[in-house]
């Protein structure tokens, strides 16, 4: 696995570094799809404690590959960055969004692995909580950026704000289900596993552009 993962990670890190440093001090708004596979790859490399859980690892690796291919074939980061992204809050927004997505997808992977093994563990909950914390910080840095740049709490020019809020509400319901012990452990794990679909659909796909055949 490492034979493919590590070179892939280095290539992805180099690409993100190059694109980001090109746009600096502005924020490359549509680099998210290329950064998410890097985030997942780093999380799986650093998270050695549960590296024995082969099902979750396979799920994350499969997802990383899918996201990397999608980001490669459907790039949107050919747009020039815009001047109002020249602020620390925009970079924090980008960072927290990527970390939030990564943690949510990790949570879904462990929930999925638990379901397949027939004994759903609660390890997914840890990642869901971290994901929720990062996602909330992403929303708050977005709000702050919106206030400083436009004077209002919501910028209606970008529809993606509604999907960020939709994902947040989805995870609020999941955390409440878990913390209050509502539903069985199996049902809660199934709900957490469905988070992968929600995160990819609501916060990854909208950032993709049209197909651009690279060869």
């Amino acid at each position: 696995m490492w034979l493919f993962l590590l070179p892939g990670l280095f290539a992805n890190a180099a690409l993100v570094f190059w694109r980001y440093s090109t746009a600096w001090p502005l924020m490359p708004m549509y680099l998210g799809p290329a950064t998410l596979p890097l985030c997942l790859g780093l999380l799986i490399t650093l998270n050695r404690r549960r590296a024995d859980d082969i099902r979750a690892r396979r799920f994350v690796l499969g997802l990383t590959l899918f996201l990397a291919v999608a980001a490669f074939l459907f790039p949107k980061d050919f747009y020039l960055p815009f001047l109002k992204s020249n602020t620390p809050t925009s970079h924090l927004f980008f960072l927290f969004k990527t970390l939030g997505q990564g943690c949510f997808l990790f949570s879904a992977a462990w929930a999925w692995a638990g379901l397949l093994s027939g004994k759903p563990q609660q390890f997914w909950f840890r990642w869901a909580v971290w994901g929720f914390a990062f996602w909330t910080l992403c929303m708050f840095s977005g709000m702050l950026w919106s206030y400083l740049g436009w004077g209002s709490p919501v910028v209606w020019d970008d529809a993606a704000i509604t999907l960020i809020m939709a994902t947040w509400f989805f995870y609020i319901s999941l955390l409440h289900l878990h913390l209050t012990g509502t539903w069985t452990a199996q049902a809660r794990a199934a709900y957490a596993a469905s988070g992968a679909f929600v995160v990819v659909t609501l916060s990854f796909l909208p950032d993709l552009g049209p197909l651009r055949w690279p060869f």
């Binding site: 529809a159 509604t162 509400f169 609020i172 319901s173 409440h176 289900l177």
Partner: peptide, 17 residues
Amino acid sequence: LTIVLCLLLAADLSLGY
């Protein structure tokens, strides 16, 4: 009620997109 409202909000915001 919290769970139902959260899911309705998520669906409504997705439609809003």
